[in-house]
């Protein structure tokens, strides 16, 4: 709302100055718009959290969303992970061979996949598949008055629609990340053994010896946060969707882009934090 009001100010200023907007007004309006959007998103997130962790829970809805978010994402997550693991092994081998350090391929692959790439790739893939999907579905419900209908039938959209998606995402994402970790490491192993002439047993032993519980836990913690980000962005943009196919399409795009950027941003913040605390 503030942003649009700001835009009107800019527009008036533009008219007065014959098409040359005052840059300070433009920056001011854009900043106000950004802050109010962040504020709305944060309040929405708190409301989703509050409903997700207090009864009543629509268990059937949570289960349905877990199947949608978790099970149906397995192919895309698995395929992405195997190629990322394979490419990672090749690049580490190429870089390592310059210093005669090819033997570090298994340890760097397992570290890179579990601490970073397994979770990030899963997060990014689900930002596209799930966040945009949730947003389009809820957006379509919003513009066809189904969300209003829910409220008139004494069912809160937060409790019936948003909280189940939020819970399903924060449960399904860690499970998907575990799968991505295993398949990603397997991708690295496949390339190393069949293309780079590594001994299979030695590769697996090096991988197992280097891997610690903390590496896996770091990825899983990230996955929970990414799940929260993806579900919240999808629900938020869907809930705010404007009428018509354009409105719903725009909501889906905003959800996907917003979720992807937030996945990368929170990933960096968490990585910094985990390094600081020695996790």
């Amino acid at each position: 709302m503030n942003y649009s009001q700001g835009s009107e100010i800019v527009s008036n200023a533009s008219t007065r100055k014959r098409g040359f907007p005052n840059p300070l007004q433009w920056i001011g309006a854009a900043s106000l718009g950004l802050f109010s959007e962040v504020g709305r998103l944060f309040i929405f997130f708190l409301k989703v959290m509050a409903t997700a962790f207090t009864p009543r829970w629509y268990v059937a809805q949570v289960w349905k969303q877990m199947v949608n978010i978790g099970f149906y994402s397995l192919p895309v997550v698995g395929l992405s992970a195997v190629f990322i693991g394979a490419a990672l092994a090749l690049n580490i081998y190429e870089g390592g061979s310059r210093y005669g350090a090819e033997q570090f391929v298994p340890s760097i692959v397992v570290l890179g996949i579990t601490r970073e790439l397994g979770a990030t790739i899963t997060g990014l893939m689900l930002a596209g598949r799930v966040s945009a999907g949730i947003s389009a579905e809820i957006g379509a419900m919003r513009v066809t008055e189904q969300i209003d209908a829910l409220e008139t039938l004494s069912a809160s959209p937060f409790r019936y629609l948003y909280a189940p998606r939020f819970l399903a995402a924060i449960i399904a994402l860690p499970l998907l990340v575990l799968v991505a970790d295993i398949i990603g490491i397997m991708g690295g192993w496949l390339v190393s053994v069949y293309a780079l002439d590594f001994d299979s047993t030695t590769y697996i032993r090096n991988t197992m010896d280097f891997l610690t519980n903390n590496d896996v836990i770091v990825g899983l913690i990230k996955a929970v946060v990414f799940g929260a980000v993806i579900a919240t962005m999808g629900c938020y943009q869907g809930d705010r969707s404007e009428a018509g196919a354009t409105g719903v399409g725009r909501a889906a795009t905003l959800a996907m882009v917003g979720a992807a950027v937030l996945v990368l941003a929170t990933n960096y913040i968490m990585s910094t934090l985990f390094v600081e605390i020695g996790l």
Binding site: M141, T144, E145, Q146, D148, A149, L150, T152
Partner: peptide, 11 residues
């Protein structure tokens, strides 16, 4: 009770 213009049935 409410009857919406579009029906607003849950798909």
């Amino acid at each position: 009770g409410m009857l919406f213009q579009s029906g607003a049935l849950f798909d």
